[in-house]
Design a protein around this nucleic acid. Structure first.
Lengths: 209, 209
DNA sequence: CGGTCCCTTGATTGATCATTCAACCAAGCA
DNA sequence: TGCTTGGTTGAATGATCAATCAAGGGACCG
């Protein structure tokens, strides 16, 4: 029944609050209250609030696989469906929070206009890690997608779709924009699959394009 | 040689600063310095800082057509190319500012996690106005796009692409993510045009799908 | 028992923030 | 000339913020 160490409680409290109210709008007092700690403890563990943010971003990055992907992909074997299952997980978070809670990384990324190098680098790494996982799905899809498709680029485009959709849905307080975005991405991928399929039968017939 | 009235100088100063550093990170002092005014003048014109934000969002919305679309569309007659010319304008802003200045509406939208009703409504209206213009282009494209295409949805998806691309490019400080996103959107639209074209020749031959 | 190490406590500090206000100015009018 | 109205001045106010620090607690070791 031992509580988590104070340092970890602070990280998780900050993680939650930064995602919910943003970095700048979350005061150190808010974090202390949420974590049940005192300011001295926070500043014993972290030199500044920004160093706590760094720890949060590192924690979030490490949590992408076990906390986000694993549950989203449980029971989903199809590589392409996994991409949309991931997007569905974000939809679930939006739906569960009345379109308030989207992607904390995106929020923080747009909130910090002069981010110090370490913070920006970690935001980059978070985005990259996400894109890496999607790219792996798209690569695993093999010849279901056109051979000459830029799969990394499509993975980036997938993140773009998620973040842009979340932004609009949070603003409008409706899932409409998110759903419209995802359904168009899905349409695009379907057309890519059709093109790849057509390409394959062309090749089987020995025809050239 | 008369200067702009103080009230307008304040709005334009705030517009610039909110876009550059965000709403929360811009202090009233910053705005006063930039506008060359005193706090009393600001609070004579606006009850609170947030009311100034409201005025800024209204001003921005009215400026979308004359300040953003008009220059982006000068000399571009093709309806579909206009969509990408608009996206190109954002690319130009990113390029000119080292990927620092993207879309102020998007920044503010993600920055304000508990936006009061008037602010959120104005953010919504800004997004809607942007989407309206793109939708009009897509509608004007007529049968170059599939007849059953959800054009409003594609316009929303275009905004999604822009905002998501800007977010990533600002974070990575590279145009790569923005360019990748746009080029995939372009690929998607190209495939839609091909499908529409195929559908038209089917119809001309009297075949059915 | 005393000593050391790690961590916690919580009042305090000083900076910064949005906002206020009494005084002031200039133009228009009588 | 004096009154009114709309706008300006900038120091002052009080709230809030991140960060500090002297004091203490308790576990472990001799």
């Amino acid at each position: 029944m031992d509580e988590l160490p104070t340092r970890d409680r602070l990280i998780f409290a900050a993680l939650r609050l930064f995602g919910e109210k943003g970095y700048l709008s979350t005061s150190v007092q808010d974090i202390l209250r949420e974590a049940g700690a005192n300011s001295g403890s926070l500043y014993h563990a972290f030199p500044t609030k920004q160093d706590l943010l760094v720890a949060v971003l590192e924690t979030y990055r490490q949590g992408i696989e076990p906390m986000l992907l694993a549950p989203a992909w449980a029971g989903v074997e199809d590589h392409i469906e996994r991409v949309f299952a991931l997007l569905g997980a974000y939809r679930g978070m939006l739906a569960a929070t009345d379109c308030l809670y989207g992607c904390p990384i995106g929020s923080i990324a747009l909130e910090l206009h002069e981010p110090d190098p370490p913070v920006r680098e970690l935001l980059s790494k978070n985005f990259d890690g996400w894109v890496d996982h999607v790219e792996r799905c798209l690569v695993a899809a093999g010849d279901r997608l056109p051979a000459d498709l830029d799969r990394r680029g499509l993975a980036v485009f997938t993140l773009t779709t998620m973040e842009g959709g979340v932004m609009q849905s949070r603003t409008h307080r409706t899932l409409d924009a998110f759903d419209a975005s995802i359904s168009h991405l899905r349409d695009y991928v379907r057309r890519l699959e059709q093109a790849a399929s057509a390409g394959r039968s062309d090749a089987a017939q020995g025809t050239t394009g």
